[in-house]
């Protein structure tokens, strides 16, 4: 695999002097799904806007498909589709016209058969002649996606495509994203629903305060940073931790059971010792359950450590 998008030392200082990006470097592999996570104001949209040519960088460079986004902007931009965070659409235009417009803008010949395919896929075909102002919010988002796909991009940026979208459409969207990936399209998405990123992304990048904290394969990240919890239900609920068990990383649950947190990548998990000590203390277990910490837990930890 080779990098289709290569970001080198990208910096952005807005007019007022606010530094929204600091020396961000990032290689995005062809065909992967990369999820960019970060709290509000982290710089995700700024990063995407610079790559797409909407915002000028203050420093650094970007190539897309080997084309420099400033010197060879035609080559670079022709490869990119963008679904922006804000829903901005021409209210009085019909759906089909605005999608056709985008395709033309990106230098592609009119191809109604292809557009029909996308519109059908996005359940917009029946609405094709409707004015955009008459569509619901979710449908407008679909129109944005149809526009972004109208010129068959190789790299697709989805800036919070599922904000304010119902469960059904979200599922549809991820179905489409998976389909695109199967066709070899590279996808970069931002989302605040981290379980979505967990479900769909190959790699995860975390941005905070304009800095890229990490980019890592999702599974590796979860194995490295993820903790596991063992929940122990007891026959007789406890009021306080018994003395002999204080050496362990244990918490009491509201029901008087115990939660043991351990690191799966550590040499010893300590489970065997704990269970033995429980028996010595005369505690009877009625149930055991383990839980892997989610990407969300990892994300929250990362950002909290990094500070505001």
């Amino acid at each position: 695999m080779s990098a289709i998008v290569s970001v080198k030392g990208l910096g952005k200082t807005y007019e007022g002097g606010f530094e929204a990006l600091r020396a961000v470097s990032l290689d995005i592999e062809e065909g992967e799904i990369l999820a960019l996570l970060g709290p509000n104001g982290a710089g995700k949209t700024t990063l995407i806007s610079i790559i797409c040519g909407i915002t000028n960088p203050s420093g650094g460079s970007v190539t897309v498909g080997g084309f420099d986004t400033i010197r060879d902007f035609r080559g670079a931009r022709a490869l990119i589709g963008l679904v922006p965070q804000e829903v901005s659409l021409e209210p009085f235009e019909s759906v089909i016209n605005t999608v056709r417009f985008t395709r033309g803008l990106f230098g592609k010949k009119r191809d109604d058969a292809y557009l029909e395919r996308i519109l059908r896929q996005l359940s917009l075909w029946d609405k094709r002649a409707d004015r955009i102002m008459t569509l619901s919010g979710g449908m407008k988002r679909r129109v944005l996606i149809a526009k972004a796909l109208s010129h068959q991009p190789r790299v697709l940026f989805l800036d919070e495509p599922t904000a304010g979208v119902d469960v059904e459409l979200r599922k549809d969207m991820w179905e489409i994203v998976r389909g695109l990936r199967a066709d070899g399209v590279t996808i970069i998405l931002t989302t605040h629903y981290i379980e979505e990123a967990e479900a769909i992304a190959d790699r995860v990048g975390v941005i905070n305060n304009g800095e890229l904290l990490l980019v890592e394969e999702k599974n590796a990240l979860m194995a490295r940073m993820g903790k596991k919890e063992l929940r122990i239900d007891l026959a007789r609920p406890l009021d306080a931790l018994p003395k002999p068990l204080e050496a362990y990383d244990l918490r009491l649950t509201d029901e008087g059971g115990l939660i043991y947190t351990y690191d799966t990548s550590a040499e010893k998990t300590g489970i065997t010792d704990l269970l033995a000590d429980l028996r010595h203390a005369g505690l009877h277990m009625v149930d055991l359950d383990t839980r892997q910490s989610s990407l969300e837990d990892i994300f929250v930890d990362l950002v909290r450590e990094d500070g505001p």
Binding site: C52, F73, R74, G75, A76, L82, T102
Partner: peptide, 17 residues
């Protein structure tokens, strides 16, 4: 109008000079 309603993003990101 595109500036006002935000659709200017398309013009700026298009491979058009």
């Amino acid at each position: 109008f595109p500036k006002f309603i935000g659709t200017v993003y398309e013009l700026l990101s298009a491979p058009a000079s």
